[in-house]
Design a protein around this nucleic acid. Structure first.
Lengths: 227, 227
DNA sequence: CAAATTACTGTACGGGCGTACAGTATGCGG
DNA sequence: CCGCATACTGTACGCCCGTACAGTAATTTG
């Protein structure tokens, strides 16, 4: 690694267009932000040329600062992971906090879309993100359970795994079915009041009844699952 | 379109290796099967050269029969959609039928992985597949509801949408986190007895309690969702 | 058997894109 | 002012991969 590595972790808006003057950032930071934005908007196959254009620099300058495209990708991954720890967008099972704690959802949207894309491409950061998500969920659920707001499970860890898969997965499906033109709009697009209502109902009311036919069916499946 | 289009819809195994003698199929059919398998195994960016090798033919023969790679992709999409209608792997909420109606899960696995990849790439077939899935789910749920096995919902259509997103989405997450080396193993990998148990519990028992704190929380969210 | 259609292969072209290389401007410490 | 690191740009090379073209064998048709 011969390229420059002056780690300036400045806190800057995620969307280049939002900063009043794009030139009040170092080119290095501008490149990172542009890359993050382009990765979210176009996917990781976006050409370096596009990123360069978005950042207002030449392509070789990118490689000068970040060496290879892979490394730039990696840098963006770390930034997104770190940002996700800050803002609590991931509290999907506290749907209120989503639209509440964030006055502006656009930054959260870009992060969300970026992570969805990481899952879509099955990059290594997807695994890091998933375990982070599960960890986050675990503490939330533990707290809520302590307050008696959440039922018990026969396999708490597996339930967490399932919840996380469903939450992230439904985002991925929505993204695939209805890809947002601008990544900044994604959160607003997916968490409609109708969807939130359905989620609430789904989590607070069982889907299966306790009808006798259902009971025998369930027991049948349960016995088959034992092997 | 100048290429050959003799639509021979022969029913053949999805995995080339499984057929006793690969040469008892026409080259055209072998190419299609190889493409479907390679798309599932490596994704849609797999080079035509790899498909050609898998099918035991030259690259130009592929273009001779199917014209462009896009068209070959499209042909595979249609085949998978059609196959999915036959086998009932999609009855995820009848988990028993998954391992039961299919003596051999490998064919279903390839189809499943293929469709997951369609979602990952956000191709047009993903939308077709999703609506097909929802349709399928709708009839199942309607029947089960008629038998009194399933609860009612305030917004049945949205609940179906949510169920479908969660079911397919969790598959996508599992695929991203733990990509199978061989697409034929995916179904067995994801539907472990532990996972099935968690799903059953999840659908038959509410996640949220009726604790007073929870109630006020829910009402609070519900009122916010009205706008 | 002749002729034409179909089945197939080898080679090569061209576009897209990451990256290496050479070179120029700019700022900074002696 | 000089030397040198740093910030940057233009150009070009090379790889991958889809596809077009030309040509050959096999198979069918009259």
């Amino acid at each position: 690694m011969r390229y420059m590595d002056t780690t300036t972790t400045s806190i800057t808006p995620l969307n280049p267009r939002r900063s009043a003057d794009r030139h009040d950032l170092t080119a290095r930071a501008r490149i990172r932000d542009a890359a993050l934005y382009c990765f979210a908007r176009d996917g990781f196959r976006v050409p370096l040329r596009t990123i360069a254009e978005e950042a207002g620099v030449s392509v070789p300058l990118i490689t000068h600062h970040y060496g290879t495209k892979d490394h730039l990708h990696h840098v963006c991954d770390e930034r997104v992971l770190e940002r996700f720890l800050d803002m609590k967008i991931l509290a999907i099972h506290e749907p209120d906090s989503i639209k509440d704690t964030l006055a502006d959802t656009s930054a959260a949207s870009v992060l969300t879309v970026y992570m969805v894309r990481s899952f879509l491409d099955a990059t290594s950061s997807a695994q890091a993100f998933f375990s982070q998500f599960v960890d986050h969920l675990r503490t939330i659920v533990a707290a809520a359970r302590g307050a008696g707001m959440i039922t018990e499970s026969g396999d708490e860890e597996e339930r967490l795994h399932l919840l996380a898969s469903q939450a992230i997965g439904s985002l991925m499906v929505e993204f695939a079915i209805n890809p947002p033109a601008d990544p900044r709009d994604f959160v607003d697009q997916v968490y409609t009041s109708r969807n939130l209502a359905a989620q609430l109902e789904f989590y607070s009311r069982p889907f299966f009844t306790e009808h006798p036919a259902m009971k025998t069916y369930l027991e049948h499946v349960r016995s088959r699952g034992q092997d």
